[in-house]
Amino acid sequence: MTETTETFTYDYPAIEAIVTRHEAKGRAGLLPCLQEIQAFTGWLTPDICQLVGRRLDVPLADIYGVIDFYTLLYREPVGKTIIRVCDDMACYLNGSEEVLSSFKKWLGIGPGETTPDGKYTLEVHPCLGYCDLAPMAMMGDDVHGHLTPDKVADLLEVK
C-alpha cells in the first residue's frame, strides 16, 4: 500500500535540511535525524535511509537494524495517524479489551493494519505509562484516557 505515503508532505529539500542539521554529530545524530524525518514522511523509505546513511556515515544495514529495533520507527507505510491502544495490565484491569474491540470494529482492521484510506494504523502497545488514565490510547501524540466504546466512536467520528 505504497500510496499511503502520498498523504504526507514528501518534500526532499526539507528532508535534506534535517539531515544537514544532524550531520555534524555523525552516528549520534542518527536517532533524532530519523525521528524528525519520520515526523514529516510518516515512514522511512529506502531512499531516505540511503541518504541518511551516506551523509551520517552509517552503513545502510545498520540503519535498517536500528529502525527495526525500535517500535516507533517504521520501514513500511503507515496511516496518517497511528492509534496505539494500551493493552497492558493496568489498562486490562480497567477494560482495555472492550476498547480494543471497538477500535477494531469501527476501523474494520486488526492490530498492525492500516485502513484502506490511509488514515489510521492500529497498534496494540505495551504499557504506555498513563495507568492513571486506564484504559487509554494514543492517537498520534494525543493521549485519550478513561476510554469506553462510546468514547472511541466519538474519537473516530463515526457516530
Binding site: 552516528r27 536517532l31 530519523l34 537494524g65 517500535t71
Partner: peptide, 25 residues
C-alpha cells in the same frame, strides 16, 4: 534532549547510551 523510540530496554543505562550513540539499544 534525546527522545526514545519505543524500547523498554533503553531504560537500562548502557542500552540508553547505545541508543544515544545511534545504535540498537
Amino acid at each position: 534532549i534525546y527522545r526514545g523510540a519505543g524500547a523498554y530496554v533503553c531504560g537500562e543505562e548502557t542500552a540508553l547510551f547505545e541508543s544515544i550513540e545511534g545504535r540498537r539499544g
